[in-house]
């Protein structure tokens, strides 16, 4: 029976479902409550960025070694480019 119904879809980590919801909820607070606006906005942006970066980290954790070493190096290169971009932004 299991073979007829095919493989089950993979389970999505709950954190990847929750973070976008947090981003919207905190973003709405930041939009209307000026007292906590800046902090709330930073949390909202952080939650959005963290969802994609966490998704990548979870994928990398499932890669196989040493076959996937070059893709790990590409991922490290990508992170370094993002950090370099942030340093450029801070200096401008």
């Amino acid at each position: 029976m299991a073979e007829l119904s095919g493989p089950r879809p993979p389970q999505v980590p709950r954190v990847l479902r929750v973070l976008p919801v947090i981003a919207v909820a905190v973003g709405v607070v930041g939009l209307f409550d000026h007292a906590v606006g800046a902090v709330a906005a930073l949390v909202a942006i952080g939650a959005v960025a963290a969802t994609t970066l966490l998704r990548l980290a979870l994928e990398v954790r499932g890669w196989r070694w040493p076959a996937d070493t070059r893709f790990l190096l590409a991922t490290i290169g990508l992170v370094l480019i993002i950090v370099a971009g942030a340093l450029l932004g801070l200096r401008s």
């Binding site: 919207v24 973003g27 709405v28 000026h34 606006g37 800046a38 906005a41």
Partner: peptide
């Protein structure tokens, strides 16, 4: 987008509340 925002947000291209408005 994250790489681009890493440059633009620390440079102060938009304020935090405008950024929150975009996310919402």
């Amino acid at each position: 987008a994250i790489a681009g925002l890493a440059v633009l947000l620390p440079a102060g291209a938009v304020g935090p509340q405008v950024a929150a408005a975009a996310v919402v």
